[in-house]
Simulated assay, not measured.
Amino acid sequence: MQRLRSDIWCAAFVRRHNDLGRMCVIARRGDPVAGQIWVEIDHLNGTSSLYVPAPSATSDGLDRVFQRRYGEVEPLTIRERIAREVEFDPDLWVIALDLRNGDPGLEVVEG
């Protein structure tokens, strides 16, 4: 199965959350075709979580599968991690989502 382009996936993800009344934006644009997508969630209580692509061996044929890299940590920890990754991979996409609780709308596997 061919993977959906990163720009289209990100646009759909942002639109879906905004339609639900959540604040969701593309914080960083990467390669439109094959850039990795990271999702930063602000829990609106002073903590954030970060979801990154899961290893391809765990995808079970799904288009995009994520794993939680950081769960409810200080936002600076996540910003520093994203900055390090951008130095390594400038094609990275970052989506920022404000979500106090509930489903982030991602296929998540335990990592």
Rank of each mutant, 00 (worst) to 15 (best):
5 R>C: 03
105 G>E: 01
24 C>A: 13
37 I>D: 01
1 M>F: 13
73 V>L: 08
30 G>D: 00
27 A>Q: 09
43 H>N: 10
106 L>W: 00
16 R>D: 06
20 L>N: 09
46 G>I: 11
42 D>Q: 11
34 A>L: 12
54 A>D: 04
31 D>P: 00
39 V>S: 01
105 G>S: 02
64 R>M: 08
7 D>I: 15
1 M>V: 14
95 I>Y: 02
16 R>K: 12
96 A>K: 01
51 Y>L: 04
36 Q>F: 09
33 V>L: 14
5 R>W: 06
56 S>E: 15
44 L>N: 06
2 Q>R: 08
108 V>G: 00
42 D>P: 07
54 A>E: 02
3 R>T: 15
59 S>D: 10
35 G>P: 04
69 R>W: 08
101 N>C: 08
71 G>R: 14
11 A>W: 11
68 R>N: 02
71 G>Y: 15
28 R>T: 05
109 V>S: 03
102 G>P: 06
75 P>K: 07
66 F>L: 03
71 G>P: 00
82 I>W: 01
10 C>L: 09
27 A>T: 09
51 Y>P: 00
53 P>A: 06
95 I>K: 05
19 D>H: 10
21 G>M: 06
62 L>D: 09
32 P>R: 09
57 A>D: 14
77 T>D: 12
55 P>S: 12
103 D>L: 08
30 G>S: 04
44 L>D: 07
67 Q>H: 11
12 A>W: 10
48 S>Y: 05
18 N>S: 10
7 D>P: 04
80 E>G: 00
98 D>C: 08
108 V>S: 01
30 G>I: 02
67 Q>S: 09
39 V>C: 03
4 L>A: 01
78 I>A: 02
96 A>Y: 04
49 S>A: 11
89 D>W: 11
72 E>P: 00
109 V>A: 05
97 L>G: 01
13 F>D: 00
100 R>H: 13
18 N>M: 14
44 L>G: 00
77 T>S: 11
23 M>R: 11
25 V>I: 15
93 W>T: 04
22 R>N: 03
84 R>Q: 14
43 H>V: 10
73 V>A: 07
10 C>R: 03
56 S>D: 14
80 E>V: 15
111 G>Q: 12
61 G>W: 10
17 H>N: 07
31 D>F: 06
